[in-house]
């Protein structure tokens, strides 16, 4: 994950106050793809509002093959434990709508 900022950008972020916060609220890598399938009312179900622990556990179980799947086993293998946790935290923080 790249989080390198030049001194200029850092100064700009501090000057603007919210820039650093906005950067932290960016979706972590991979997260924005998920809502192509996952939504309220869909067969795949919404991710927003599920707990971080639930999503982390689901991704780990899909990755290991422990949880039966049609496609999530193939997708979960594209993310390691840290990356999965970042995605889970982002969806958990977005709450339900």
């Amino acid at each position: 994950m790249s989080r390198r900022y030049s001194p200029f950008l850092l100064a700009l972020a501090l000057a603007c106050g919210t820039a650093a916060r906005a950067a932290e609220l960016r979706p972590p890598p991979g997260a924005s793809s998920c809502t192509g399938c996952h939504a309220q009312g869909a067969a795949m179900g919404a991710l927003e509002g599920r707990s971080e622990a639930e999503i982390v556990a689901a991704l780990a179980a899909f990755r290991s093959g422990e949880r039966p799947a049609t496609i999530m086993n193939r997708i979960a293998r594209g993310f390691d434990a840290d990356e999965s946790r970042a995605i889970a935290a982002w969806f958990a923080a977005r709450g339900s709508h």
Binding site: S2, A22, S32, G36
Partner: peptide, 25 residues
């Protein structure tokens, strides 16, 4: 579309876009 739009937001704000990961199904 989402990754590109976020990168554009970052570039306009003077931030470096984060290295993305994308899914296709």
């Amino acid at each position: 579309g989402k990754v590109c739009a976020q990168a554009v937001i970052d570039l306009l704000a003077g931030r470096e876009p984060e290295t993305p990961r994308l899914i296709n199904t």
